[in-house]
Design a binder for these strands. Sequence first.
DNA 1: TAAAAATTTGACATAAATGTCAAACTTTTA
DNA 2: TAAAAGTTTGACATTTATGTCAAATTTTTA
Lengths: 198, 198
Amino acid sequence: MAKARDTEQHIVDTARKIFLVEGRLHATTEDIGKAAGLPRTSVHYYFRTRDVLFKRVFTEALEELTKGLNSIVESDLPFAKKIEQYVETWLTFSIMYPHLDTFVVTEIINQEYVPVDKKAGVRMNDFMKQIQAAMDKGILLKMPPVHFMLNLFSLLRYPSIAAPLYKQLLDVSDRQYQKLLKERKAYILKALLKNNKK
Amino acid sequence: MAKARDTEQHIVDTARKIFLVEGRLHATTEDIGKAAGLPRTSVHYYFRTRDVLFKRVFTEALEELTKGLNSIVESDLPFAKKIEQYVETWLTFSIMYPHLDTFVVTEIINQEYVPVDKKAGVRMNDFMKQIQAAMDKGILLKMPPVHFMLNLFSLLRYPSIAAPLYKQLLDVSDRQYQKLLKERKAYILKALLKNNKK
DNA sequence: TAAAAATTTGACATAAATGTCAAACTTTTA
DNA sequence: TAAAAGTTTGACATTTATGTCAAATTTTTA
């Protein structure tokens, strides 16, 4: 059996869970090894340094996300439909990897190399043009597109990032909070779209 | 001159800047000392351990925030005015200490003691009742109050937390991003309140 | 102004995390 | 099936951060 590749993948999976799902950004190679049922040195055998593993997890997740989103933004669905799909995809991803941008932000703060997709800026500008057009048509609340975008990402990301805090403040279980997050699509759209009937 | 208290305060101020403003949550006592123009051991002289200093910064900031917000929530301003002031206070604080809740969340994740104000849960429930009443009156978009609250905090906090990322994505300077943040009040309210004229 | 108290800081001890190496072991391949 | 290649893991070396101590210095107080 291809044990090697299995073990390597198993370590990546374990690290992804620790870093992106649990948000334990400073987990040590010891922690990761233990969680994977391996000695710490196995982690070093496959990835040499902790940093290589860290970047691998991080890059893979970003790629996965980007792939999903691009196809939506570039599609020629009507804007209302497009934004709905966009929110849904992000929301799913957000719940799956609640700490992805904490991760990115931490890296930037600590002056680490962050593989910013060169095309990300261009795509963002393109998206903002689509937003402006939708505002002109009266589908969206009127405001500078950059604020619309900040609103959108705030509503999508913050409740996942700050989950541990709000679970405590609202005194709800993991399961209940997960349920809340999944319900959010409707209320995010309500805060962004114009037709605020009732 | 009361040099002692000065030095102690100077260390707290420096640490606050590093932890809450720059978001360098793992800055070492060496880093803090250096930034304060002191040897690392001075930090230990005043606070014994890094953790004591860490918790001090954190507790003080939370107290400062809580004090400001309580007077607003407990006031008997009409709700529309109240929410406006609430947003303004939070926004100012948010810009001043962009990393406060990253801080809290990290603490919770790492199972550290977090001094959750016992009354915070109660106040939150009270606030949600006020929200419900405002929805009944048609001032706010209708939705479960908990989602309104998540929306509110998302809109207030995320752009500050994720500033390093969006500065890069939008390719804007520190100053320009600060300006954006200050403009947000109007657009946050627009996404929350009902009277979406034009 | 001399003794007491408080402070500053360099030197030391300890702990925690990382990364390397080589010996033991397993799997593959020729 | 034997040698080559790949893997696992314990032992070691290094690095980084923390915290303590005591000697030197400064400030306060009686």
